[in-house]
Structures are given as structure tokens and as C-alpha cells.
Amino acid sequence: MAEPAPEPALRASSLSQAYGESWVLRDVSFELPAGGTLAVIGPNGAGKSTLLQVLATLLRPSSGSVSVLGSELPGSAWKLRGRLGYLGHSPLLYRDLAAAENLRFHARLFGLPAEGAERIADLLERVGLAHRASTRVGEMSAGMVKRLAVCRALLHDPEMLVLDEPLANLDPAGADVVAPLLGPRRGRSRVLVTHDVAAALSGADRVLALTREGSVAFEAPAAEVDPDRARSIYSEESLRGAMA
């Protein structure tokens, strides 16, 4: 399904995002080749989640230009419907529906053949929730909900994964189960927010570091980033903030 696109998977230039009267992202530019992985790092409040919501077409960019899988936002956002797998802080699951019912709902919305029955069973099996298929989401632990949300995001085999701290709320066992599912794959581009700098540098092709003000600290191939320099964005920024 995911044919390699000639254009980069992501391209943003001078993207700025306002929330009411204040700027959350300032003049952010980056590019990610098709099939690659972009890790977004930065201190709390740097606008990482906002950036991912923009890339997932859930927020309209305030200014600057962004294109995802060759579609310009927000004008061509509709072309991306059904091609992105978004995993944010909110699981996008109904509390009063059972695990399998939630997935079936999404499978139908994505027009999967035979309501994706096989795919649902397979995914539930792989995240270790097969025995919980008829448990309501409202009765699940945070870790289980997260695993179910991973199934939801992967259900339609998206061309691009937009992952906001995908391993948060998971215990080490859960993380081990989920990580390979969300890992790099041929023809699938990924953008992920993480606080784990080491993982970002080893698992990604490019790293985008944001400052506390929401502007770019650096943007570089992961291999060329010095881990200490990457870690310093967390402290350096507070230092600069204190001096100003």
C-alpha cells in the first residue's frame, strides 16, 4: 500500500503555531526523507505535541508551510485522511466500548475489508490483549489502554506514524511488546516525540531539537549529533531563560 513517494515525507518551512495570543512554535523548519524517522526532542512546553498535532492534520498551522506525504497543509489535509497513524496523549477510544468494539469501529471508519476482523485479532494478540477483547476501555489500566491505542493507530497499516511519546504509561514489558510494532519499517515514515535522548539518537535518522520557546535548537542527522549536546537543550535553555 505504501509506495515510496518521490518527495520527502515531511517538509516544514518557517512553521509557527499560535495558541490564542502566544506562540507555541516559532519559525520551525525541517525535512524528513520518505521512509525515514524523525525524532523530536525538547523540554516540556517546547511545543512538541503541538507540532505533532499539526503534522497529524489535527491542528491548522498558523503560518509557514508544511507538507506531509506530499500534501500541503491545511489545504490538502483531506488527502491524508486514512494514511496517518496518530498516537497522541489521548487514546481516541470510547470508554464505554470494549477493546474489540473500539477497533471494529475504527476499522469500519477506515473502510477495511471484512471490518478488519483478522487484523484486529492479530493486533490484539501481538500487544497481549487477546484475552481482553471484550473488556470495556473504561475498565482497563492506563498501560492496557495505551497498548490498545497502538492497535488503533496501526489498524489501517498507515504510510506514516505520528507518535507522541509512544512508550509513556507502559511498563518495561509493555514497552517491549509495543516497540517492535511501532519500529522502522520499509516504506513507512515516522515522526516521534521522546524524552529518551539515547533512543532518539539510535532509533532515528534525523533529530529535531526544540527549545523551551518553541524554536529550533538544532536539526541534524542523528548520527552527527553529539549526545551531550542533545542532552544540553534541557539545561541550557533554563540557563538562558534565567539570564535573560
Binding site: 519559525d27 498558523s62 503560518s63 508551510s65
Partner: peptide, 13 residues
């Protein structure tokens, strides 16, 4: 971002 257009009154792309 000083020179950028204010939200709300901006010409949203």
C-alpha cells in the same frame, strides 16, 4: 517571530 502576522488577524494560509 516578531515580524510574523498576529493570529486571528493573520491571513491564514
Amino acid at each position: 517571530v516578531g515580524a510574523r502576522i498576529a493570529p486571528g488577524t493573520a491571513n491564514v494560509p
